[in-house]
């Protein structure tokens, strides 16, 4: 099963992969959106529910031929580090 791609993939019906052209947009609960391109990172500073939008265009023909898909992302508070005193 290791050869099967795990994760998100984007391709044309004819089979050509468009993965490298996918934009990922992160939108927080306030509606603020940030787009991450390949090679970039996004820092989740706050907890909350985010919307992750994957967008890709048919680069062979037209930038107007766009497909997108969204999914939810829940960012939890990071548990505070437990301080253990060494008595």
């Amino acid at each position: 099963m290791g050869c099967i791609y795990e994760g998100v993939s984007a391709k044309l019906a004819a089979g050509k992969s468009l993965n490298d052209f996918v934009d990922v947009t992160v939108t927080n609960e306030d509606g603020d959106a940030a787009t991450i391109l390949k090679g970039q990172n996004y820092l989740f500073e706050e907890s909350g529910t985010y919307t992750i939008t994957y967008t890709v265009a048919n680069v062979e023909v037209s930038e107007d031929l766009i497909a997108e898909h969204t999914r939810k992302m829940i960012v939890a508070e990071r548990p505070e580090a437990e301080v253990i005193l060494d008595e």
Partner: peptide
């Protein structure tokens, strides 16, 4: 239009601040 697929069927992602 391009077609998206997801191996985890677009499950909700989980992360921490």
């Amino acid at each position: 239009l391009p077609v998206f697929t997801s191996s985890d069927n677009w499950k909700t992602l989980k992360a921490e601040a």
